[in-house]
Amino acid sequence: MKTLVYVDHVDGVIADATFELVALAQSVGSSSVEALVCAGNEEIVEKVAAQLPGIENVIAASSSEFENYLPNLHLQCLNETIELKNPDLVLLSYSTSGVDMGSGAAYASNLPLVCYVTEMTIEASEMVTASQVYGGKLVANVKTPLPAIAVVMPGAIKSDLAKKDTTPAIETITTPTDTTNIKVVESLQPESGGIDLTKAERIVCIGRALGGTEKLPIVEELANTLDAEVAGSRPVIDAGWLPKARQVGKSGTKVKPKLYLMAGVSGAAEHLEGMSDSELIIALNSDEQAPIFSKAHYGAVCDMFHVLPVLTERLQNNS
């Protein structure tokens, strides 16, 4: 079975999720693993190849056009590589590029596509996967005949990378010309707003159930009492209830505090990606089916607006 992995990288620094894809490709029994790297120059390609000693071949599209990620140009490159190599399995990470390219590649190559994959085996030329759907409330068990494309959740499948002594061969492919007129005007670095959640040892995270800023003081007071930072899941940030710098999850910050107390966060995969390595996770939610209860260490089905003030009071009275 030939597997093609699309490499997510920034200036040659490979994303953790891409290493997970390579390890996954190895663990499901690929006879060869090739990686597609789109990069601004050959040096970056070499830097990427040097980090991937476990694979056979790096397929490189290097051109100044690839200095920045451009959705359609990269998709064109992936499509051409699939056509050229006829892989049995194509693996992408569920990142912005994975969303941009998964469906487009499936359409162009007429291959089946399965997204949000958290488990995968290959059984008798079939890709057997489990995916999180409906915000993690249901699991979809899908059997798909190969060849197929899968978009895999970062952090979901952790297997060891089999390293070999040899660095992969680099095969350069002709790069497509961008006919679609997307240009990068400016690259933007994360907005810190003076807060660095990655350094916080204790975080109190609030979810969509907050419902507005009126009840935010309840959360802030608990956080103050616990000497914790306040964070929010994406809907809280999108609604403007907390600043972007306080967002935990896929498009926010990835955190690993000692204490992660979360209230009203359902636990969609995008949020879990940002906090699942926390040492102690306590989740409060009014929905007993909330997927967060499968990831938290401790949980309670309750009305957070009742429990949080009582907890704050108890903590204050005991300090």
Partner: peptide, 27 residues
């Protein structure tokens, strides 16, 4: 292409749940 079955996630290995009323949970 292929087949799909939906299932509820297995919560059995998930969180240790606190039960009771507001005061009991906070405690």
């Amino acid at each position: 292409v292929g087949s799909t079955e939906l299932a509820l996630p297995d919560l059995s290995e998930g969180a240790t749940m606190f039960e009771g009323d507001t005061d009991a949970i906070a405690e």
